[in-house]
Design a protein around this nucleic acid. Structure first.
Lengths: 74, 74
DNA sequence: CCATAATATACCTTTTAGGGTATAAACTCT
DNA sequence: AGAGTTTATACCCTAAAAGGTATATTATGG
């Protein structure tokens, strides 16, 4: 079971919901530009803004342990 | 098994490591004030800064599904 | 208790994220 | 292939995050 990166998660969920970036921006209350930066993996995003979007998809930002088992790469 | 909030995780790990806020600030390369805001649950933090600290403790910010089972509250 | 260290609060400055808009490029789909 | 739609890039502006420092408050231990 693979953990999706933030950008992957948002992009996938948005597509599933059949929303455009514009529509997601409106629904979540953030700017359109923010959605784009998010889906392009900008690292300096504000947590609260990211969470505004994640809650729409039943998720949020949290602490995840870094994988030391290297299951992916084996 | 309980998932720790960001502030709880950082505080716990910092104590475990026997570091002061000052020392953690230096080690991670962020300002002292940032550590304080982090440990006080300021919601508008920048993800990259938060991650600078989390990597020291073998973790990072990631997407976590919101709990719909309400196990805690039952 | 007092001294010292650690943490919290407050003020000011610099830097930059986020928003808006306008243009360009990349997809659809008929 | 071309019209319309969606996404990407580039500009400027404003609001606020982050840093520094200085002071207050709280813990700690001697």
């Amino acid at each position: 079971m693979e953990r999706l990166s933030l950008k992957e998660f948002v992009k996938a969920k948005r597509k599933e919901s059949g929303l455009t970036q514009q529509e997601l921006a409106e629904k979540s209350g953030v700017g359109l530009r923010f959605i784009r930066e998010l889906e392009q993996e900008k690292p300096t995003l504000r947590m609260d803004k990211v969470n505004q979007i994640l809650v729409l998809f039943g998720a949020e930002l949290g602490v995840v342990e870094l994988d030391r088992t290297y299951l992916k790469s084996l």
